[in-house]
Design a protein around this nucleic acid. Structure first.
Lengths: 347, 347
DNA sequence: GGCGGTGGTTCAAACGTTCGCACTGACATT
DNA sequence: AATGTCAGTGCGAACGTTTGAACCACCGCC
């Protein structure tokens, strides 16, 4: 493997000159540049990124922390998509991506700090947000550059990129209300997740906007698994004193919606005739379910891009124009909530 | 950020001693080790991986090349799974993962070589295999350490990890034959893909084993998209002179099988009554299709683990016991091919 | 009392870059 | 003739580690 010194020797110049040729320094004559470049090509020289990083005190690498959170169901192509977005921007700015996976929260915590402390990465993007995340606290305390994908409530100085869960949920529920539904069930994830809270807020706002009463009995929580979605839906669809049987269910994740569909089927209920269903995340299989599932599509790729842009801006010493970015989501109406016959009319 | 020198000064020893404490060198007294470790903790010292890499002439990092090949449909959780496998082993051996994505083959080619030449990674794992891959040729020519996930035919000295596509396809088709099917359609990917060839070979072997004639007319190719699977299935299911209407279809990918199911539905054919369907890869949605799709489950996670083990062995100067690893796949029979009523009896 | 052995430590040279500063001519200006 | 300007290049010190070789004190042994 040839070094800058070998090239310098062969070209009859000093290593510094070769270095300046590499960085296209203006004070090197065009003639020298061309000659040195020729030699570099000829010798098959490629600059050593490690050595450069050492002296530049920067690895030009972004750390990517992906944990196996409950939210990341296998069905969800969240990771490939967001990585694609991040990667596009990173390459544009000549940054590399260091990937770290973790199976537990503690592991995620230590691995993440490890990358940063060992100076292997200049900053990190966290692909999971939790309420009161101790990792976030540590990152702030040690003053590392980082961006979170997902909202971080309460911490004003944290950079994050999120989709507008409140608005999206509001739109989804609004859509159901406009189709004549008045009793709408809500199937959420764990109650302490920010996403659950935000989507529940959107649900409430939609109800309020139409003068509908919020009935806590129509709200069920789950652990994001299909099974728990199934259980929640069965409970809701059975009805109870004080709890009307909902004619529509809004699930905060398509995997949950999958369970809801299954429950409806098992109870002999037609979707959307007897109960309409809207999910969230628009997983790729949504169009292929029977009936095809209405869902909220979130701009994962764009979120990745924005997260990367935000982090790189910070790393390059810039001040991001906005520390938090909220991207709009889009409701995709399919048959599961788009029946020609309104549920209300059917009764 | 404190360095090894700062620690040395504070501990009243030389930097070399601190270095040897870090690597737990036997010639350093227990007493000194403990004292130095205390100081390191107290000062919040963490070794600089970049500097270490420079002198050790190794980055202890594995490059991961993921390209947007046609095969990697968004439906397929291939990447998260295989990365999880690779990552597990990498962490075990203290290796980091550098991720590079590419949208074109040329980009993949240059990015991959770039990582290696810049000494950013010690070796790479290629997450896509193609016949006569120029990247593989270059990697061989420049003597870089690499492992391919997927079979690389013709190159004996390439390390790779694959699932046994021939055997798996044979088993799948065998299953259909045992259920009474004699005219079995084959929907493959592009003809020059190794996976297609291998799975077609398995198909032929199964037929041969039961003394069934191979009918080239029953073989259709596609580009791995759902649409092309649909088109291929329509063609097959229409029948033609010299081409009997198949009572079963084996698709080399579940996304293709999705198209096949759709085609059957549109033609008013019952699955599995009129036509049985078996797919490949066992995507997570397979159980939720109607009918649930029979498919071949491949051990993606294990393949990732094996690939990482192989590469790390090579990087550490070892000689892998076997340069190529073939892992078994498993047929998962579901309703799409598992009807109680055999298709043959129904006619 | 010289000698070898050994446990514990230090010295100093790498590893391959970058970059502030100094240097050298050539030419222009006073 | 002395000085200034400027393009073009080189010097050398970093950056934070690792590691072979050298060193030193101490011990026991003949």
């Amino acid at each position: 493997m040839s070094t800058i010194k070998d090239v310098a020797k062969a070209a009859g110049v000093s290593p510094s000159t070769v270095s300046r040729v590499i960085s296209d320094h203006p004070r090197i004559s065009q003639q020298t540049k061309e000659r040195v470049r020729g030699i570099m090509r000829q010798m098959g020289y490629h600059p050593n990124a490690i050595a450069r990083s050492l002296v530049r005190q920067s690895s030009f690498t972004i750390g990517l922390m992906m944990s196996r959170s409950a939210e990341q169901a296998l069905l969800n192509p969240f990771f490939p998509e967001i990585i694609r977005g991040i990667s596009t921007v990173a390459r544009e700015f000549q940054y590399s991506l260091l990937l770290s996976t973790a199976s537990t929260l503690e592991q995620e915590h230590t691995e993440c700090l490890q990358m940063l402390r060992a100076r292997r990465v200049d900053g990190v993007i966290l692909l999971a947000s939790r309420t009161r995340d101790p990792l976030v606290e540590d990152l702030l305390a040690e003053q590392y550059a980082f961006v979170v994908v997902g909202r971080v409530p309460g911490r004003e100085r944290v950079y994050w990129v999120n989709n507008d869960n409140v608005a999206a949920a509001r739109e989804a529920v609004n859509h159901l209300i406009l189709r004549g539904h008045r009793d709408i069930g809500f199937v959420g994830g764990p109650a302490d997740f920010v996403v659950t809270q935000d989507r529940l807020e959107g649900y409430r706002q939609a109800l309020a906007a139409h003068g509908l009463r919020f009935n806590p009995q129509l709200v069920q929580h789950s652990d994001f698994s299909r099974e728990s979605g199934y259980a929640a839906a069965r409970l809701l669809l059975h009805g109870a004193p004080g709890r009307p049987r909902p004619t529509a269910i809004f699930a905060v994740d398509d995997v949950l919606a999958l369970g809801v569909l299954q429950a409806a089927h098992d109870l002999g209920l037609q979707v959307p005739g007897d109960v309409a269903v809207v999910g969230f995340n628009d997983i790729p299989l949504a169009p292929y379910l029977s009936p095809p599932l209405s869902s909220v599509r979130i701009p994962i790729y764009n979120m990745g891009q924005e997260a990367a842009r935000l982090l790189i801006t910070v790393l390059q010493g810039g001040q991001p124009s906005v520390p938090q970015i909220v991207l709009p989501a889009e409701l995709v109406v399919r048959a599961s909530s788009g029946a020609e016959v309104l549920a209300a009319e059917r009764r």
